[in-house]
Design a protein around this nucleic acid. Structure first.
Length: 255
DNA sequence: ATGGTGGTCCAACCA
């Protein structure tokens, strides 16, 4: 099973690229973030024609997540439990006996903003949720746009980014807290090239200069980590015409 | 230190 995550920054704009990447990379499951459209606009028919089921937790203009899968998606959950958050950032479902949790973690804007405090509170609620999910599901994958670079190797210039949003101590500790629950950053189980990033700012030719961050992650429970055969970023779509600012990240598992 | 780009939807917000 091949599982992937991609922040597409508007599914309306990026649907042709999503269909092209599905055909090219052939993932069994693709988790999408920032689809920026309500559920009634979700392109279920175009995906079905490509051989995929799809479900969404959409929202107009901002946020919105979706799951695309060759096999049916069951038992969907669309929010962190006990939350009245109107921001659509969570979509979990079960595929072929594997629980998949798709996340669009808040960006946080800057460390002195209300949005940063919201991000840290949200991550605390996420931790409580994932603790329960790990109890309930031996085979668990948690993936998406985490808006946090885990370590020095995941940042093009750690000294520039240190203390700033996406690489601040409190965010990195919150992410480490998720791993302490019993989740593994699958990308780092394998040898990777230097400068393997998943997001590059649209500004200042950041992609051309490879000034990026690895903030799109695939975490697995130990049972999934043991079954993981490979993981990588596919930077190619970031170089396409009118790209998302993120590239897809994938992980492959034995059956 | 600033501003650079892009999506949504036409002013301003978010990333």
């Amino acid at each position: 099973m091949k599982v992937a995550t991609w922040n597409v920054n508007s599914l309306k704009v990026r649907l042709p690229q999503v269909l092209a990447w599905l055909a090219e990379a052939g993932p069994d499951v693709l988790a999408l973030q920032e689809i920026k459209q309500p559920d009634q606009d979700f392109p279920a028919e175009a995906l079905q024609a490509a051989g995929y089921h799809g479900i969404s937790n959409g929202q107009r203009t901002y946020n919105g997540v979706a799951l695309v899968s060759r096999q049916p998606l069951a038992d969907a959950v669309r929010a962190l439990p006990g939350s009245e958050d109107p921001q659509r950032r969570v979509l979990a479902a079960t595929v072929a006996g594997v629980r998949i949790v798709n996340l669009y973690v808040p960006n946080g804007q800057s460390v002195d903003s209300d949005k940063y405090r919201y991000k840290l509170e949200w991550l605390q609620r996420l931790r409580d949720y994932l603790a329960d999910e790990l109890e309930a599901h031996e085979k668990l994958i948690v993936l998406g746009d985490f808006n946090i670079a885990p370590g020095e190797r995941d940042v093009h210039d750690p000294e520039l980014w240190r203390g700033r949003v996406l690489f601040s101590e409190a965010e990195r500790e919150a992410l480490a807290g998720l791993l302490e629950l019993g989740l593994v950053d699958l990308f780092r189980q394998f040898d990777q090239p230097e400068g393997a990033f998943s997001w590059w700012d649209y500004r200042a030719a950041a992609f051309r200069r490879n000034r990026g961050l690895r903030i799109d992650l695939i975490l697995g429970s130990h049972a999934m980590a043991e079954r993981c055969l490979a993981s990588a970023v596919d930077p190619e779509p970031r170089g396409w015409e009118r790209p998302s600012d993120h590239a897809p990240v994938w992980a492959e598992f034995e059956e």
